[in-house]
C-alpha cells in the first residue's frame, strides 16, 4: 500500500480514493488516477463543479453539447449510478470499468441488458427495441419500411425470446448474447488499456508513492 499526501486532487469535489476505486474495478490505481485527469477536464467543461452533467457528458462524447439522442441519454442514465442527475468520479470509474477489455463478461452482459431495458422493468420489451431501432434509423439516415422493421423484430424475438412471452428476460438475454457474441462489441473500449499513456499527466498528481495494482 502506498503512502498518501494531502494534494489538491483530494480537495476536488468529485474525488474518491483511487486505491478503493481500483479495488472495486478492473482498473489499477495508476489507471484510476489517469481517469481522474480525464474526469477533471470533462467535469469542468461547462460548469466547474467537479461533477459531470448531461451537457458535459455529451460534449465530451460527441464534441457537441446539443446532440439529443435516445442512446446517449440512456448511457448517461446508466453512468448516473446514484440517480442524482450528475455523474461523480466514482460513478464514472465504476461505469467505465465495465467497458474495460478485462472486465468480467457477466458485467458486460448485465450493463447491455440495462441499456436495452429502457424503462427498467427487468425485461427488454418489443416496443423498447422498436423505439431504439427507429432512433437508430433516424440517426443514421437509413430508411426502412415499417414492415421491414417488424420483420426484423419478429426474427429477433423468435431467436431471443425463447419462452415467446413477448419480452426478453435476463436469462434469455444471456443465452442470446452467447449465441451472438458480436452484440457485446460495443461493451469493450480498447482505449481503456492505454489510459495511463493517453493521460500521462496523472503522474504529476499521483497520490501514491509507488504504483499499486
Amino acid at each position: 500500500m502506498g503512502c498518501f499526501h494531502s494534494t489538491a486532487s483530494k480537495q476536488f469535489p468529485g474525488h474518491e480514493d483511487p486505491v478503493i476505486l481500483a479495488s472495486q474495478t478492473a482498473f489499477s490505481v495508476s489507471e484510476v488516477e489517469a481517469l481522474f485527469e480525464l474526469y477533471k477536464s470533462i467535469s469542468s467543461s461547462v460548469i466547474d463543479d467537479g461533477l459531470i452533467n448531461k451537457e458535459e457528458f455529451q460534449l465530451a462524447l460527441f464534441k457537441n453539447r446539443k446532440k439529443e439522442n435516445l442512446f446517449a441519454n440512456r448511457i448517461f442514465e446508466l453512468f448516473d449510478v446514484k440517480k442524482k442527475g450528475v455523474i461523480d468520479f466514482g460513478d464514472f470509474v465504476k461505469s467505465l470499468s465495465v467497458f474495460h477489455p478485462n472486465a468480467p463478461h457477466e458485467d458486460k452482459i448485465d450493463f447491455s441488458f440495462k441499456l436495452y431495458d429502457l424503462d427498467g422493468t427487468g425485461f427488454i420489451e418489443r416496443q423498447e427495441v422498436k423505439q431504439m431501432l427507429i432512433a437508430l434509423l433516424c440517426e443514421s439516415g437509413m430508411k426502412l419500411a415499417d414492415e421491414t422493421v417488424e420483420i426484423i423484430l419478429d426474427k429477433t424475438f423468435l431467436e431471443a425470446d425463447v419462452n415467446q412471452d413477448g419480452k426478453i428476460d435476463k436469462s434469455e438475454w444471456q443465452n442470446f448474447v452467447r449465441q451472438n457474441p458480436s452484440l457485446l462489441k460495443i461493451m469493450t473500449l480498447p482505449y481503456l488499456r492505454d489510459i495511463t499513456t493517453t493521460f500521462p499527466s496523472f503522474v504529476f498528481h499521483s497520490e501514491v508513492d509507488e504504483i499499486v495494482t
Partner: peptide
C-alpha cells in the same frame, strides 16, 4: 432452414451501429 431465404440482421446488431453507443469520444481529442 431455407437456403434461399436472406439472412436478416437482428435488431440488436442494428442498434449497436449507433455512433452514440460508442464511448471512444471520451478519449479522442
Amino acid at each position: 432452414k431455407n437456403p434461399d431465404s436472406p439472412t436478416l440482421i437482428n435488431a440488436f446488431q442494428l442498434i449497436g451501429m449507433s455512433s452514440c453507443l460508442d464511448l471512444s469520444g471520451f478519449f479522442e481529442k
